[in-house]
């Protein structure tokens, strides 16, 4: 039949798809294991001839090495290029990112799960108002929140404190979490709710003992979305953090970019480090992301 033609078409399309999606990242990874000399060759070496992990070592050892004007002028022997004075902040900043992301995830669940259950399963007065309210808050551009947040946070002395990031990230993640969860809860039968109630569950017990165990796929999706959003967020972190005490990974990595003396091999290694955790999470839990979104979107 037309099987062969279809296969050729699918194969070509798949190949184009993969090249588009993966080629830039592959090049990032490839250049992160090249030495300064190789990275500056023309035309570029697509596949490194002498792969090295020196760039990564430089990042993890940046703490021990003293970076001064002289060492920078001399060039760092480890990378054959310049490494920035902020390099030592990279690993701590990843810890900061992790702390912020985990806190946001936990608070998100505590806030979004009960709210989504109420919106999906309880017929209360004001239901549609609360749903519209929740959706419209997500429409506000992050940048419009920056000034009031900044003044607000300064008043409470939270500037340069991870707490300020946790609070503001809740604003941008909660509406989306609730949206996904409402869709999922709605797809579960109402009669389960009634059954649990006559079996002696209060509303909260119904949620915890019946709906939460059943909503695991979408809970995983919410955790992932929230984690990735917090881990990756840049704009607000740029405004509210000033010192390495609170700077998150995107801020430190971005600081490399504005320094023209830094070796690209080093920046690329940092880029790879920044990319690995979220990409691993996303690919491993791919199933949940798609199904979590599906339940929400189909209902919408």
């Amino acid at each position: 039949m037309k099987g062969l033609g279809r296969n050729v078409l699918l194969f070509t399309a798949s190949a184009l798809f993969l090249v588009y999606v993966l080629a830039p990242v592959a090049w990032l990874v490839s250049s992160s294991v090249q030495q300064e000399a190789e990275i500056t060759s023309r035309p570029p070496h697509w596949i490194p001839r002498q792969p090295t992990l020196e760039n990564f070592e430089a990042i993890f050892q940046a703490k021990e090495k003293k970076v001064t004007y002289e060492t920078r002028r001399a060039g760092d022997p480890a990378t054959g290029g310049y490494i920035p004075s902020t390099a030592r902040d990279l690993v701590p900043s990843m810890w900061n990112s992790l702390i912020v992301a985990v806190s946001v995830v936990v608070l998100n669940l505590l806030v979004a799960v009960p709210a989504a259950y109420a919106m999906a399963k309880i017929r209360y007065i004001g239901r549609s108002t609360s749903i519209y309210f929740m959706l419209t808050t997500r429409v506000i551009p992050d940048i419009a929140l920056v000034v009031p947040f900044f003044l607000f946070i300064r008043t409470f002395g939270l500037l340069d404190h991870l707490g300020s990031l946790v609070i503001t990230y809740l604003a941008i993640t909660i509406p989306f979490s609730v949206f996904i969860l409402v869709g999922y809860f709605e797809s579960l039968p109402d009669e389960l709710d009634k059954a649990a109630r006559v079996d002696g569950c209060s509303r909260l017990q119904t949620l915890l003992r019946v709906y939460v165990p059943l909503a695991m796929p979408s809970l995983v999706a919410v955790v992932l979305f929230t984690f990735l959003t917090s881990w990756n967020e840049f704009l607000l972190a740029l405004m509210f953090t000033q010192t390495p005490a609170s700077q998150t990974m995107p801020i430190v990595v971005a600081s490399f970019a504005s320094d023209f003396t830094i070796s690209f091999s080093f920046i690329n290694a940092a880029g790879v480090l920044a990319v690995v955790p979220p990409v691993l999470m996303a690919v491993v839990f791919e199933r949940y992301i798609v199904s979590g979104l599906t339940a929400g979107a189909v209902k919408g």
């Binding site: 389960l192 009634k194 006559v198």
Partner: peptide, 28 residues
């Protein structure tokens, strides 16, 4: 409802999908 001593049987049965039959019966 949870403070009334009534039991209910539904058209869709409304069994808890994540619990065994034993747990379903024992839950109340």
């Amino acid at each position: 409802a949870h403070k009334r001593d009534v039991a209910m049987v539904f058209q869709s049965y409304a069994l808890y999908p994540h619990k065994s039959v034993y747990e379903n019966i024992a839950f109340g």
